[in-house]
């Protein structure tokens, strides 16, 4: 039986391995950095499964392919389907109108609806509610995927993949850029804070003309606050400006966030192609799956299916842009 070797144990690699294993393929995974952890950019993600909201600033495939995500993840990890609430301060209401025009699947929420959904949001009279959206805890999702794979007998090697392997699927994100000429890194910064006094139960997006931000509850009063999107390939540290903007957004949602403890700051580079859509490319004996950009958890299921279709059935999904086997 042919063994498929997945390189990279981030969200893309693990999702690809899970899909291949589910379809009965023999799979092994290589990642010299070890099991999922802070070395991979999907560790720092928000974990929103929000194809309708993301469509505001993304191309159509994100909306369509992203809708596969909720069901796929729900079979493998805990997914909370509580929708997304989008709010804007009074002065930014034009942005809320634009957001509703540019997206699908939302209902308008007035002061009472907002108060009913999230009593701890203060001072927002207008919002949009995307009832069908969901979220997950990315770190837990990675660990659950990883454990599930091990239970299925998928071998994990904490080493570089040996040279000359056949049937390789390279899911290394930006580390694969020397083989993917049009891949770039897009800086993202985030914070994890603990604010036990604030009860927010679903992802909330705060619109702002320059810095749209979101907060995702992680349970036990812990919140992920993200994320900047900067055309820079410097992943050294979060800047003071970004931290200020992220914290100001939280403060605007509820001033009690001012008392929060800052647990973590995170910075990493999202791998992206010029249209910010993912690609599957077969070059020789290697299939590259990459460029998930802001949509790691949202698009990994579709990418995984596309890779499995190509590797196992030789069928080409729309994400395959080059096949030189």
């Amino acid at each position: 039986m042919t063994t498929r070797s997945v390189i990279g144990a981030g969200v893309c690699g693990l999702a690809v391995a899970a899909e291949l294993a589910m379809r009965g393929a023999k799979v092994q995974i290589f990642d010299p950095a070890g099991p999922p952890g802070p070395h991979g950019c999907s560790w720092w993600a928000g974990g929103m499964l929000a194809p309708w909201c993301e469509y505001e600033n993304a191309e159509e495939p994100v909306l369509r392919l992203g809708q596969q995500a909720i069901g796929w993840w729900a079979e493998r990890t805990a997914v909370t389907k509580a929708g997304t609430l989008v709010v804007a301060s009074k002065r930014d209401l034009p942005d809320l109108r634009r957001f509703s025009r540019r997206t699908e699947g939302c209902t308008e929420a007035g002061r009472e609806e907002i108060a009913a959904l999230e009593p701890d949001l203060h001072g927002f009279g207008r919002g949009l509610f995307f009832a069908e959206e969901a979220h997950l805890d990315p770190r837990k999702a990675l660990q659950d995927l990883f454990r599930g794979l091990q239970e299925k007998g998928v071998e994990f090697h904490k080493t570089f993949a040996p040279q000359g392997l056949d049937n390789v699927i390279d899911c290394r994100g930006l580390a694969a850029r020397e083989y993917l000429y049009d891949l770039r890194g897009v800086k993202g910064e985030m914070l994890v804070i603990r604010a036990p006094d604030v009860q927010i139960t679903r992802p909330v997006r705060l619109l702002h003309p320059r810095i749209p931000l979101y907060i995702v509850p992680r349970g036990d009063g812990v919140y992920m606050l993200g994320a900047t999107t900067i055309e820079s390939e410097d992943s050294s540290r979060i800047t003071a400006r970004s931290m200020l903007e992220l914290l100001s957004a939280a403060y605007a949602l509820n001033p009690a966030f001012g008392e929060a403890e800052v647990l973590e700051t995170g910075v990493d580079l999202r791998p992206a192609f010029p249209d910010n859509l993912p690609r599957i490319r077969r070059l020789g004996k290697t299939i590259y799956a990459n460029g998930l950009y802001r949509h790691g958890y949202l698009l990994a299921p579709a990418v995984a299916r596309g890779v499995a279709d190509l590797a196992l059935n030789n069928t080409h999904s729309e994400m395959v842009d080059e096949d030189r086997a």
Partner: peptide, 15 residues
């Protein structure tokens, strides 16, 4: 300024 100092935005700038 926004896209970072020290040549960090190189790929984007090249585009």
């Amino acid at each position: 300024r926004r896209e970072g100092a020290g040549g960090a935005g190189q790929t984007f700038w090249q585009m």
